[in-house]
Amino acid sequence: MDEKNALAEKNDTHDMKLDYRMPIYLQLREIVRAKIEDGEYLPGTAIPSENKLAETFGINRLTVRNAVDALVNEGILRRVQGKGVFVVGNKYEEVLEEHGGFINNFSPGQKHVSIKEHTKQLRPAGNKYANYFNIGLHDLIFYIRHFITFDDETVSSEEIYVPKEILPELEIINSSVFTLKDIFSFYGIELSSMSQTLEIINGIPKTRKSLDVPDGVALLMLSCYYRDKTGRLLAYSRSFIRSDKSTFSIQLHS
């Protein structure tokens, strides 16, 4: 019996049989993914050893390793030297849009999430932000940089730009405790629309290093524009997010 048939036969739970001529390691990847989603492999526990998996499915160990590696790269599994391969639970979920509400880029109330204010300074707008905010070249803007950690691991860095004239109080506000949306509402600034863009980028070595992004893992860039009801831009932010540490969800309506 060839490897493919052996795998199909052993996989009697019919989990994810995506066999559009799929190689064995990919089928195993989907089986393991389904077992995690089904709760058979629980977060924080180790999955069976590579030897054991190879034996169970009657396949080559190298094939097992490829499947496991793929899920490690996605951040679903974590390999711990000398201990095994563990299921990563509860990824830091960023809510892109909530029903009827605004975006929550990060919820400080969420367990294990911490936001650190790394930089906060005033700087001249310069060409780009003078045009963005429709202010003078030398008008001052706040530049704030956050590092966001989840379970003691850095998952993203966020840079926020806000003209000083819009929110001078930002100088004394700790921007890591409240979201920008909250801060605006505290000071009676009406946020009326928000647009976000999420894309996958390579990034530059410096950014990748600051977030400890492993080779081969993609980076996400999330840009956000905050506007008032006249359409004036109030703030702009840009985040770099480790793709193996975050997922996004979004609510869709008809």
Partner: peptide, 29 residues
């Protein structure tokens, strides 16, 4: 009528077959 839904978004990497169908290099994000 399709009326509502929730979508999850994450990042994965193209397998050889997926890469072939999507005409990208394998392992592309």
């Amino acid at each position: 009528k399709q009326s509502s839904g929730k979508e999850h978004i994450s990042v994965t990497y193209a397998s050889e077959n997926e890469a072939h169908l999507l005409e990208v290099t394998p392992d592309s994000p």
